[in-house]
């Protein structure tokens, strides 16, 4: 079966972001970018499904500026077969991303679409679910285990109270949680091979999707700063402070 994986280029998760002085956004100039960690897990899961003989082709799609090709190449080096870049310099909201992905789903007809559960920049946690609604496909969000069985997939989901398993009929959409798998590293030979794998570039207009925005960022500010408090000498002093100074015990 064909698996479609969506990946996003985001600020590297180790970078401490800075808010621009004019409060318009965070500063992304000269900041290290990488594949969103949840998307890496999505790629890894697709590759494992291929290694098990369940998946036959892995198509990876990303939406963003020309440089987002890097993240597609990374995915190809990890084992995806071909890439699609929907090139745009505009900042897109989740609904538009979901509409663009729907157009790709309509064209490619994958049996399984795997996305990360959220991107670590906007922290929205929306796109996979919206794609589910637009395509009418069932969803298994926050997956920690994915088992494909014939024309069904059982997805174990991480929920607040523990784990819950849903059975979905294929085609279906899965969004990955951190514990689904441990992504591999790309080897140098595979990185070289990835350069020769096909990568198609299309525009939102090619897919017939109009980009419109309904949300305006009024301002972006740094969070209220917490300052370091005091160091206590021992447990007795700690308990005393908590009881008599902070009054929280």
């Amino acid at each position: 079966m064909k698996v479609l994986v969506a990946v996003k280029r985001v600020i590297d998760y180790n970078v401490k972001v800075r808010v621009k002085p004019d409060n318009s956004d965070v500063d992304l100039n000269n900041v290290k970018m990488a594949m969103n960690p949840f998307c890496e897990i999505a790629v890894e899961e697709a590759v494992r499904l291929k290694e098990k003989g369940v998946a036959t082709e892995i198509v990876v799609v990303s939406i963003g500026p020309k440089v987002a090709q890097e993240q597609i190449r990374t995915s190809l080096a990890l084992g995806a077969d071909r890439g699609i870049l929907i090139e745009t310099d505009e900042k897109l909201e989740s609904l538009t991303v979901a509409k663009l992905l729907k157009a790709v789903v309509d064209k490619e007809q994958p049996q399984l679409v795997i996305l990360g559960k959220q991107s670590i920049d906007s922290d929205n946690n929306q796109t996979g679910q919206m794609l589910g609604a637009l395509t009418g496909l069932p969803q298994g969000t926050f997956a920690s285990e994915v088992v494909v069985d014939g024309d069904k997939v059982n997805v174990t989901r991480e929920v607040d109270a523990g784990l819950r398993t849903v059975g979905l009929s294929l085609p279906a959409i899965v969004t990955t949680d951190l514990r689904l798998n441990e992504p591999r590293y790309a080897s140098l030979p595979n990185i070289m091979k990835a350069k020769r794998k096909p990568l198609e570039v299309v525009s939102p207009a090619d897919l017939g999707v109009e980009i419109k925005s309904t949300q305006t960022i009024v301002k972006v500010t740094p969070p209220a700063q917490r300052s370091a408090g005091i160091k206590v000498a021992d447990v007795a002093e700690l308990v005393d402070k908590l009881k008599n100074e902070a009054k929280v015990l």
Partner: peptide, 13 residues
Amino acid sequence: IYAGNAIATVQSS
């Protein structure tokens, strides 16, 4: 946003 390292004020139409 950004794991709580920035706070966005968003207006929706």
